[in-house]
Design a protein around this nucleic acid. Structure first.
Length: 474
RNA sequence: GGCGGCAUAGCCAAGCGGUAAGGCAGAGGACUGCAAAUCCUUUAUCCCCCGGUUCGAAUCCGGGUGCCGCCUCCA
């Protein structure tokens, strides 16, 4: 049985699906007016790992991840954005909708590169405004709203259990002491939040509503879309730690008040990723994207592996040094599984692996303890298990880890070491062959000089007894 | 001011009451013309500090110190 740490009850609880065998999962997805950064990706990796673990536990997940393509994309913010990509798009006369489309595409591309299992539905906020209006109307009927002049607010004192999720205490937050006239002037108390806002002049995204032409508040997005695709009650809600308050607290308050249901049974939050001990921010120039990592020689799979070396609730401090260590570790694992996986002579699931299998399973089912599971993988890699056993294990485990442990059948091309011409440019291959001849003839000084040249070209020379040397990218 | 998280070897990181997983780096060995790669072995008498509970604590309690986050858009 899979157990997960639930933010509301603050302890690990066994997953007990509302519908037998089916697990409904909702994840707060990206806001598509910029590229997602590696911190966002760590959060989405939690969803991916969760979905894979649900399958591993023999259940079928149904995953919904929203795309926020208009909610808090304020027209004003668009106009004065410092983001170069947006600024350039605006300069070219692109609409907010076109910009959102572009970054949505970029998001899906990153998901593929990270080897995320696709969600079943990716609802766009802009396509669900009628559903949001319906939620707001229901809240109005329940007497949990107030407002005037095109604005509608949610009265948090009408929500049962407000604060259970985040520990927020009414009147105790810093917002209580802050007064932003333009935002707070119509609110009775700082914790109340907008369900509907009047459109400012020139706003591209706006809709007709019972309260006038305008646009929906941010928190109502998730309440409406989760409700539409998963119903008033579902199993797991996933999101980044920063969304705990106010976004999740408010989504929950609204949904529970509107439907009378409990909304999500479990709330799972991903701890943040920082860079060099600081929160990522534009001003510090440390908001890395997957492309930034690749430009520095870090493959998306290397980053995925690196994330898995930490538990999802442990804050991560991203450093190039630690990422490099993970890159090497993954490369070694792959080599071991590839090389030995090819040794298999008999088909089947292998034997003698019961113990590691059990411990891997236990780790994953215990609140998705990926680092513990990876330790088991490393043990197996050093265990001396026969090829067919390693092959079976790699296949099973990679369903959960998704880090590309090769599953090479005997005779499979992946079971054979790559030939020089397959990994290196022709000139480098020529150097390697020339060096082989020098060595055979005992001209070691020349051979060593050639090795140095090959190194400079970015390749390691892997000598093999009686066979041509292999080349490997450094 | 309110709420929360984290402090474990040179670095990253599990463990959360029973006597310190795993990875990277380092050291020794095998292999090699020498290397690299690979393989084998090895590397924390101790888990930020001070008290306490317990037969027993990195793990629980109390008090410190340091770092970080949320409370405003934020994964």
């Amino acid at each position: 049985m899979l157990s997960l740490y639930d933010t509301v009850s603050r302890k690990k609880v066994p997953l007990d699906p509302l519908r037998p065998g089916r697990v409904g999962v909702y994840t707060c997805g990206p806001t598509v007016y910029r590229y997602v950064h590696i911190g966002n990706l760590r959060t989405y990796l939690l969803t991916d790992l969760l979905l894979r673990a649900v399958r591993f536990a023999g259940l079928t997940p149904f995953s919904v991840q929203n795309i926020t393509d208009m909610g808090h994309m304020h027209q004003e913010a668009l106009e004065r954005t410092e983001d170069k990509v947006i600024a350039a798009a605006r300069a070219m006369g692109k609409t907010a909708r076109e910009i959102a489309e572009f970054f949505t595409g970029a998001f899906f591309r990153d998901c593929r590169r990270m080897n995320f299992l696709p969600s079943d539905v990716y609802p766009r906020a802009s396509a669900h405004v009628p559903e949001m209006i319906a939620v707001a109307e229901e809240l109005e009927r329940k007497g949990a709203t107030y407002g005037e002049g095109g604005y509608l607010y949610f009265d948090v004192t009408k929500a049962k259990g407000y604060g259970e999720l985040s520990g927020a205490i009414l009147g105790k937050g810093e917002a209580a002491g802050r007064t932003d006239g333009s935002i707070h002037r119509r609110k009775r108390r700082p914790e109340d939040f907008s369900l509907w806002l009047a459109a400012e002049p020139g706003r591209e995204f706006c809709w007709e509503s019972p309260w006038g032409v305008g646009w929906p508040g941010w928190h109502i997005e998730c309440a409406a879309m989760a409700g539409k695709y998963l119903g008033p009650e579902f199993d797991i809600h996933v999101g980044g730690a920063d969304l705990r308050f106010p976004h999740h607290e408010n989504s929950r308050a609204m949904a529970m008040t509107a439907t009378g249901g409990r909304f999500a049974s479990l709330w799972v939050h991903a701890a943040h990723l920082q860079v060099d001990g600081r929160k990522m921010s534009k001003s510090l120039k440390n908001e890395y994207t997957l492309d930034d990592l690749e430009a520095r020689g870090v493959d998306p799979m290397d980053f995925r592996y690196h994330c898995l070396t930490l538990h999802y609730r442990t804050p991560m401090n991203f450093t190039w040094e630690a990422q490099a260590a993970s890159r090497k570790a993954l490369a070694r694992l792959r080599e071991v599984f590839a090389a030995r996986g090819g040794e298999g002579i008999s088909p089947g699931t292998g034997s003698g692996a019961g113990e590691v299998r059990r411990r891997f399973r236990e780790a994953i089912l215990d609140d998705l303890n990926a680092p513990k599971a990876l330790a088991v993988v490393h043990e197996a890699a050093r265990s001396g298990f026969p090829g067919d056993t390693l092959q079976a294990l790699a296949g099973e485990w990679d369903e959960v880890l998704g880090i590309g442990l090769p599953v090479a059948a005997p005779g499979d091309a992946r079971a054979e070491p790559a030939r020089p011409e397959e990994v290196a440019p022709g000139e480098v291959g020529d150097l390697a062959r020339l060096r082989d001849r020098c060595r055979r003839e005992g001209r070691y000084a020349e051979a060593d000089a050639l090795r140095e040249k090959i190194r400079e070209a970015g390749y390691d020379v892997l000598d093999r007894k009686g066979k041509p040397a292999r080349l490997k990218r450094i």
